[in-house]
């Protein structure tokens, strides 16, 4: 373990060697080797075809849609997920425990069921979708033709918001539960109003958790397939997501093409996640205690 220690700051806390070693072993076996197989297979298309694929308007369109819709869904979840976590931790209201328990359900429901349930609701003849049609009570807000949710990119955002909803809530919640009330008291005693206390004392403490939640929600949404295909409409160039392109390539028995699109998504996700994690590490050093 001397090698491991060379890049590590000394600490009195034991167990780094075994914990780090196991982490690397497990990660290698479950994630890195399989992903290496993916990249190896994708390399089979050759550089020229990879370039054609990467510049094909249909592929870039699908990638833009997938990442754009995922970004929107993750952003929605950051705002509302924080709010939900705050309300669940700080306030009491009838049914709070039940609401709290239901937060994980978007993961438990098979994605197809989620997609079907959401389509049932947001289709033009559904409970929510019918509110926004031209003849619905809220339709006039969106001009003459009303607002179409299912079978448009908007529907994709709805589905992705649903499937990634638990992340922000569940990463912020435990940290919020740990935030020291005494500090808020101290801030208040020193004359800060409530808004100042929350933005300057509470928020900085949970920013890393919020960023983690955002990153995870984004990552999950980008790869999502099962729920989206029911609500998306799947029209090429309009509402076709990148994972659908992968499935289409597979249907053509074109493993190399499928893995190439997957590798492209993986690369973009990897860079995005790395950037978010670096920002998070930086914000922790800047605002939190330098771990």
């Amino acid at each position: 373990m001397t090698q491991a220690l060379a890049f590590k700051r000394p600490s009195v806390i034991p167990g780094f060697g075994i914990a780090f070693g196991f982490t690397l072993f497990y990660l290698g076996a479950i994630v890195l080797i399989p992903l290496a197989a993916l990249i190896l297979r994708a390399a089979g298309v050759g550089f020229a075809e990879f370039l054609t694929l990467a510049t094909d308007p249909r592929v870039t369109g699908a990638l833009k849609l997938s990442f754009g819709a995922s970004f929107a869904a993750a952003a929605i979840n950051v705002v509302f997920g924080f709010l939900v976590a705050w309300v669940l931790v700080r306030y009491d209201f009838p049914g709070r425990r039940l609401v709290d328990a239901a937060i994980d359900l978007p993961f438990a429901l098979p994605t197809a069921v989620a997609g079907i349930a959401l389509t049932t609701l947001y289709a033009p003849n559904g409970w929510i979708g019918s509110l926004f049609t031209a003849s619905g009570p809220l339709g006039f807000l969106f001009g003459e033709s009303g607002l179409k949710i299912a079978y448009t990119p908007l529907g994709i955002v709805v589905a992705l918001t649903f499937v990634s909803l638990p992340f922000v809530v569940r990463t912020v919640q435990p940290v919020l539960e740990e935030v020291d009330i005494e500090l808020e008291q101290a801030a208040a005693t020193l004359g800060a109003n409530r808004w100042q206390t929350i933005t300057r004392v509470v928020l900085p403490a949970i920013v890393p958790a919020l960023l983690t939640g955002f990153a995870l929600a984004l990552a999950r949404a980008v790869g999502e397939y099962g729920s989206v295909i029911f609500i998306a409409g799947n029209i090429p160039y309009v509402s076709e997501i990148a994972p659908l392109l992968i499935v289409i390539r597979l249907e053509e028995f074109n493993y190399a093409g499928a893995t190439a699109v997957a590798a492209m998504m993986l690369g973009i996700s990897f860079i995005m996640l790395l950037v978010i994690n670096l920002i998070q590490a930086w914000s922790r050093r800047r605002f939190g205690h330098g771990a």
Partner: peptide, 25 residues
Amino acid sequence: AKHDFKGKSLLLTLIDLPFSVSPVI
């Protein structure tokens, strides 16, 4: 979380990676 070493953000990103892989893949 309890130790400090180089490449931590990279390791974290590798741990996140399975989420961004499309389930079919």
